[in-house]
Computed example of a mutant assay.
Amino acid sequence: MTSAESLNPDESIWNLMAYHLRFERQRRHLSQSEMGSILGVNKSGVSNLEAGRNRLTQDQARRVDHHWNTGGLYERLRGFAVLLGRDEGWDKQLRDFESGALNIKIYYGRVIPVPLQTEDYARFLIIAGRQVPNVDTAVKIRMARQAMLLEQLPKMALWVLIDERVLHEMDDGEMKQAQLAHLLDLSEHLSLRIVPDKAHTHIGVDGEFELITTAAGIDVAYVWAQLGGRLIHDPVEVRSLGMRYDRIGARALSEDESRTLIRRILEGTHGREVAEEQ
């Protein structure tokens, strides 16, 4: 059974559109290449749309409606899907895209992102959030996702941008020392760059996000927000976030400068603890 054949149209509006795109194409006896001419993509692009790996853009929905004279059905369905925003099962979808990814870029401005968190720091954040019934289970899930991502290095390129204030806002103590030391260790295996405080306000203040390029060449994004955020498949939106990432990166320190900054903060933290003990 192919991915398109196993797609459940009852799970989401996006799946419903993908299912009926294939159903109506076959009912009209169109090949995927012929459908590609309508949508402006190649045969592989149609296959990805019908399997739910890619999602119809607004322009593609408009093309389908025009050629099939649907009265605007696909464009309206797409509008409802976007309006609903957060997908059910977004966490599983995110993990599926991250698994086997070729390239992942992450920007975080408020906390250390999951792939770089120590277990103690992750537990601290989860407890502070007060939104989960079982802290231990939540920590295990977070650490499992981290392990999955780090195990893909170096076959996968992982790029991370973090605001400097995140490094300072952790409470001084063993947890902070361990987290900073962990960052230094990981920085030898991935690209970690710090956006310094002197950069002041930058475009990243709008919120955290992640960009993913899969092994199949599919580009998606995830925007973090209250109650989970949302996955983004629209190529225009993904490109826009890619430009945002580049603009934030233009304000960041180099990898070597970032390591120096982390090391300086770590040494300063250690120095204060020694002074307090004396």
Results as ranks from 00 to 15, higher is better:
residue 254 S to G: 05
residue 160 V to A: 05
residue 163 D to C: 07
residue 176 K to Y: 04
residue 31 S to W: 00
residue 47 S to I: 00
residue 167 L to S: 05
residue 162 I to W: 05
residue 239 R to P: 00
residue 98 E to T: 07
residue 213 T to V: 13
residue 141 I to S: 08
residue 85 G to T: 03
residue 46 V to F: 01
residue 193 R to T: 01
residue 110 R to A: 14
residue 258 S to E: 09
residue 22 R to H: 04
residue 112 I to P: 03
residue 12 S to I: 01
residue 166 V to C: 09
residue 179 Q to H: 07
residue 148 M to R: 13
residue 217 G to M: 01
residue 5 E to L: 11
residue 59 D to I: 14
residue 150 L to P: 11
residue 36 G to Y: 09
residue 111 V to S: 11
residue 129 G to I: 04
residue 53 R to P: 01
residue 84 L to A: 13
residue 11 E to V: 05
residue 188 E to T: 12
residue 10 D to R: 12
residue 12 S to R: 02
residue 91 D to I: 10
residue 79 G to D: 02
residue 247 R to I: 04
residue 86 R to V: 11
residue 111 V to E: 10
residue 273 E to P: 02
residue 196 P to W: 04
residue 39 L to R: 03
residue 250 A to K: 11
residue 4 A to H: 11
residue 155 K to C: 08
residue 222 Y to S: 06
residue 177 Q to L: 15
residue 222 Y to Q: 06
residue 60 Q to E: 14
residue 24 E to W: 09
residue 216 A to G: 07
residue 174 E to M: 10
residue 159 W to L: 10
residue 231 L to S: 09
residue 159 W to A: 06
residue 111 V to N: 10
residue 22 R to C: 00
residue 132 V to L: 06
residue 247 R to G: 00
residue 64 V to Y: 04
residue 60 Q to P: 07
residue 270 H to R: 15
residue 261 L to R: 08
residue 218 I to E: 10
residue 150 L to I: 14
residue 186 L to T: 03
residue 18 A to V: 01
residue 6 S to H: 10
residue 104 I to P: 13
residue 97 F to K: 14
residue 23 F to Q: 12
residue 210 E to C: 13
residue 171 D to H: 13
residue 20 H to Y: 01
residue 174 E to D: 14
residue 183 L to M: 08
residue 272 R to W: 01
residue 146 Q to C: 03
residue 148 M to A: 14
residue 235 P to Y: 03
residue 14 W to C: 00
residue 24 E to P: 02
residue 228 G to E: 02
residue 15 N to D: 07
residue 197 D to N: 13
residue 253 L to D: 07
residue 13 I to R: 08
residue 89 G to L: 06
residue 47 S to T: 08
residue 223 V to G: 00
residue 203 I to C: 09
residue 212 I to T: 13
residue 244 R to M: 07
residue 230 R to P: 00
residue 190 L to F: 07
residue 66 H to W: 07
residue 152 Q to S: 12
